[in-house]
Amino acid sequence: MKFTDRHVVFILVAICLSVPIVMGISTVPAPMKTANKAFDYIESLPEGDSKGVVVALDFGPGTSAENKPQAKLVMEHLMRKRIPFAVTSLYVLSTPFLKDLPQQVAKDLEKENPSLKREYGRDWVNLGYFQNGTIFLQSLARSEDWISQIKADVNGTPLEQLPVMKSFKNLKSVSSLVELTGLTGVFSSWLQFFQTTEYTPVMIHGCTSITIPDAFIFFSSGQIRGFFEGIAGAAWYEERIKQSYPQRVLNYAQSVNTGTSFAQLMIIFIIIIGNIKTYLGWRKKRSE
């Protein structure tokens, strides 16, 4: 097999990405105004707020590398502040995340400090996947009684049995929506339809690096309060959580961000090499 430039680039990318993740190396991320706004908003919610937060996990395995840490960090922050939340999705591939992520975060928190024990049904609820996104969101926003509309959680438990549902009577009982996705269509469905003429919950968004420019449109218009700019935004949010809770030992986003930052530096480096190569080839051709 001939060893070509392509192989060199692939190997370099693999090394840059995997070494920090495998070795758990993490550097202090670059500050992000957008993540700061998201953090400050959630931090401003009163501890043990009676109003709930809807966390929409609209991502599958494809974008989980960026959206999963974002989801874990928001859930961690909400659990630390004992703010009740409901996880749901309009994207079928996210169903395993709806169940696993809150459980994993609750477990991690309990491991860090047994007094931070959080329970399903009391601190969070899994409403599951909903079909027909736009239509469902319209009727959910208008509904006066979510319990009788949704009826049961993902396990089939009637919602009236879950104490957490006291914070999810209808749209007005929800303080905010955290929507995490790489799909701009799903994001705009939530943005357009999860509101009524009288009330619009505050929206926090988590996007992938590719959709950052799209999210900026709604950030500068004030439609979203703050957002996670891919994994870099998640890493800065994690830094803010660390600053507020110094005893925290978890690492959800910063290692991955360090890995991708080395890969990005490497891309700059190989672009420069590619240009030098082209320039030398062009000079050689001209001298001939």
Partner: peptide
Amino acid sequence: FPLGASMFSLLAFYISYAAY
């Protein structure tokens, strides 16, 4: 899930090579 994630992560390699 691993296959889905792998498919997407291949982009990192191809985009890097395309940039080069």
